[in-house]
């Protein structure tokens, strides 16, 4: 289906306190369409509005002006708010603060219980969700003893159990170690490929953005670039101008290319880079 999530002329301003009345807009004129089944990465500096945007997708924040629609439902429609939240799940940065229950499987069941899923069906969904994030063996554990990556996968399972069409992840790997980061990224990729869930990943790690099918770069509340990773990361100059990094492999090839060597216009990961360099050096 086309136009799964549609963002039109979105402006957002945090409620101002007395001292700073003239707060600038956190989002100023965002227009985006996200199709079903896409894997979209949104990157940008802290304060560029990427997290604020994420929270608009399931009615946590409502636009100051403009509209966000999910499956044709406006997020401002107060009566259908749970319909939206069932469709678009949100995973937050800190894994510790989004786990509600003291036992893994009970936490995963929490969302299903809230939306009134039948008892037998919950059991099935919880087991499937735990298997999908590869945490089934830990279903009876207490979340305290798990690693950050494991906790974050539990949080993802809690969303999957509600059978959403889309999962938005707001910097899910920022607080994790490299191993935890890999675990979470592999899980996300699998969910997108195998279960066809639309993924919107907010991140500041460019190596993660490279894995997406589409990268959106945000700067000062606006969309700066939007396209395939190749298209976005080939704009090394523009990215640098906005003090954004590109993957090291991309930068290396870009600089060598600028010296006049014959190399592809954009590589994204180490394999592509090695392939290109091998041709040049052999």
């Amino acid at each position: 289906m086309k136009d799964f999530i549609k963002i039109e002329n979105l402006y957002f301003q945090y409620e101002s306190s007395e001292e700073n009345e003239n707060r600038s807009y956190a989002l100023s004129g965002v227009d985006l369409t996200i199709n079903k089944g896409e894997f979209v990465a949104i990157v940008g500096h802290n304060g560029c509005g990427k997290s604020t945007l994420a929270k608009h997708l399931n009615s946590i924040y409502l636009p100051t002006t403009g509209d966000v629609t999910v499956n044709g439902i406006n997020t401002k429609d107060d009566d259908r708010i749970f319909e939206i939240r069932k469709t678009v799940g949100l995973v937050l940065q800190n894994p510790d603060n989004q786990i509600v229950a003291g036992i893994v499987e009970e936490d995963v069941a929490f969302g299903c219980e809230n939306i009134g899923v039948e008892q037998k069906e919950i059991r099935k969904r919880v087991d499937n969700a735990l298997k999908a994030v590869d945490m089934y063996d830990y279903r009876l554990h207490s979340p305290d003893k798990l690693s950050g990556g494991q906790k974050q996968r539990i949080a993802i399972a809690g969303i999957i159990a509600m059978e959403p069409e889309c999962i938005v992840l707001d910097e899910p790997t920022a607080m994790l170690d490299p191993q935890g980061r890999d675990e979470v990224m592999n899980t996300i990729l699998r969910l997108n490929k195998e279960m066809g869930i639309t993924i919107i990943l907010i991140t500041h790690f460019m190596e993660e953005a490279v894995l997406a099918g589409r990268v959106i770069v945000m700067d000062s509340g606006k969309v700066l670039l939007d396209g395939t990773p190749k298209k976005v990361f080939s704009q090394v100059e523009l990215m640098k101008k906005h003090r954004l990094s590109v993957p090291q492999a991309t930068e290396l090839i870009y600089r060598l290319r600028n010296c006049g060597y014959e190399l592809p216009d954009c590589v994204l990961d180490e394999e592509e880079c090695v392939q290109a360099l091998e041709k040049l050096l052999k």
């Binding site: 749970f82 939240r85 949100l90 929490f110 219980e113 009134g116 919950i122 919880v126 969303i159």
Partner: peptide, 27 residues
Amino acid sequence: FRRASDLAMAMECRCYNGGKGRTKMKV
């Protein structure tokens, strides 16, 4: 307080609406 506000948001994201219409996995 920071944790509480995070948790409240996470619970909202998972459609928490008090005890109304709630089911239970383990009965």
